[in-house]
Simulated assay, not measured.
Amino acid sequence: WALKILADEDHRLSRRIRIIFGTNEESGFRGIRWYAANEEAPIAGFTPDIHEGIVHAEKGGLHVKLDIPVEDQGKIFLDSFKAGEAVNIVPDMCEAVFRGDGPELQKWADSLGKAVGSLPLGGEVSLDGTSLVVNAIGRAAHASLPEKGENAIACLCRLLGDNPPSGSSFNAFRILSELLGDPRFGRDLGINMSDEVSGALTCNPGLASFEKGLLSVTLDIRHPVTIPGDLVITRIRERVEPLGIECTETSRAKPLHVPKDSPLIKDLSEAFHEVTGKYPEIKAIGGGTYAKALPNVVAFAPFPAGLPDLAHQADEYIDIEELISSVLIIKAAMIRLAR
Rank of each mutant, 00 (worst) to 15 (best):
L3E: 07
A7E: 12
D8L: 14
D10E: 14
D10S: 12
H11N: 07
I19G: 01
S27R: 03
A36Q: 05
P48R: 10
D49L: 08
I54F: 00
V55K: 02
A57C: 08
H63A: 14
D67C: 11
D72F: 06
Q73K: 10
G74V: 07
G74L: 11
K75E: 15
L78Q: 05
L78W: 02
F81W: 08
F81K: 03
K82E: 11
G84L: 12
D92E: 15
E95F: 00
A96D: 03
A96I: 06
R99W: 04
Q106Y: 05
Q106R: 13
A109G: 08
S111F: 05
S111K: 14
G113C: 09
A115K: 08
P120I: 11
G122L: 15
D128Y: 02
T130C: 11
S131P: 00
A136R: 04
H142F: 10
H142W: 09
H142T: 11
S144W: 02
S144P: 01
P146F: 10
G149M: 10
E150R: 14
A152M: 07
A152T: 02
L156S: 04
L160P: 05
L160K: 04
N163G: 11
P164R: 04
S166W: 05
G167Q: 06
G167R: 06
S168E: 09
S169C: 15
R174M: 12
R174Y: 08
I175W: 00
I175L: 12
I175R: 03
D182F: 11
L189I: 07
G190E: 08
E196I: 14
G199E: 05
C203S: 11
P205H: 05
G206P: 06
S209H: 08
E211M: 13
K212S: 10
G213D: 07
S216R: 15
D220M: 13
R222C: 14
H223G: 06
V225Y: 01
T226H: 03
G229T: 04
D230A: 15
L231C: 03
L231N: 03
L231G: 00
V232R: 03
V232N: 07
I233R: 01
I236Y: 03
E238S: 13
R239C: 15
P242K: 10
L243Q: 02
G244H: 04
I245V: 09
E246Y: 00
R252Q: 10
A253R: 05
P263V: 10
L264V: 06
I265V: 15
K266S: 13
L268G: 01
L268M: 09
S269C: 13
E270I: 10
V275E: 05
T276Q: 09
Y279R: 15
I282Y: 00
K283H: 02
K283S: 07
G286V: 09
G287V: 10
T289R: 07
Y290C: 14
P295M: 12
P295N: 08
V297E: 02
V298N: 01
G306T: 05
P308S: 09
A311L: 13
Q313Y: 00
Q313C: 11
I318H: 01
E321A: 14
I324Y: 02
S326T: 06
V327F: 07
L328Q: 06
I330P: 00
L337D: 04
